[in-house]
Amino acid sequence: MNFRIISALVLRYLFLYTRSPMRLVELVFWPVVDLVVWGNVTVFIQRNTNPAFGNEILFLLGAMILWDIMFRAQQGVAISFLEDVWTRNLLNVFVAPVRATEYVSATFIVGMLRITVTAVVLSLISWFGYSFNIFQLQWWLIPFFLNLMLFGWSLGMISTALILRWGQAAESLAWAIPFFFQPVVAVFYPVQDMPAWSQPIAWCFPPTYIFEGMRDVMKTGSMNWNYLGYAAALNILFMALAGWLFLWILNLTRKRGLLTKFATQ
């Protein structure tokens, strides 16, 4: 791993964001729209149910913000790669002395920068607009944030691998991947309220533990430590699997001569 190379690749993405402010707008626009919709739904429910539940329902906003962190981390990785595809730059990078691990690390960092921006904006708006303070999660926020980011990175690597293999035809798949997981990782509802058969599936994915933990923390101020342990262990497993998939597909594209088609597309 060469940090000079990673920082050079990150610099390229920073230039990109300064060159096209629309990208920054996009980074903020959709999360804000989401937040406003969920915020209004929350207010509506609060006004029409008993006060105890009305208080609890605030977890919808927490869920939305945390979900967005994971989703943006995935996108940060996948879009960084797509930028190189869109701009026909991929070959320049692959004929430079850049290791796959360095390339992927740079996309991770971009993913992290993106979610930092999104998280700050959402926290501010939910606080001022809906009196929801994400920092009531206190220092639990840190492991939540890290675990969701890790899972987002894994999904990002999987998306990148799919685009490498199937080209831009797989692009829409790359956008959709996080949403395949949304129903089963108990983002907006507790696992115990999911259909019984789907509950074991839910516990296979790290975000489930985080969203359960978040609701516990909001309700009781504390959570089951084991949840963090499971989430971290599963995340390591998913990162390893996704990394292996990415490298395997990268090698496959070299074998099949698919890498070069990104030059002329």
Binding site: R12, R19, N89, L91, N92, A263
Partner: peptide, 16 residues
């Protein structure tokens, strides 16, 4: 092949 079209020439060259 091309260098990223949305960057300035100087920026692209600096990155490489």
């Amino acid at each position: 092949t091309a260098l990223p079209g949305n960057l300035l020439v100087g920026q692209n060259l600096l990155v490489f």
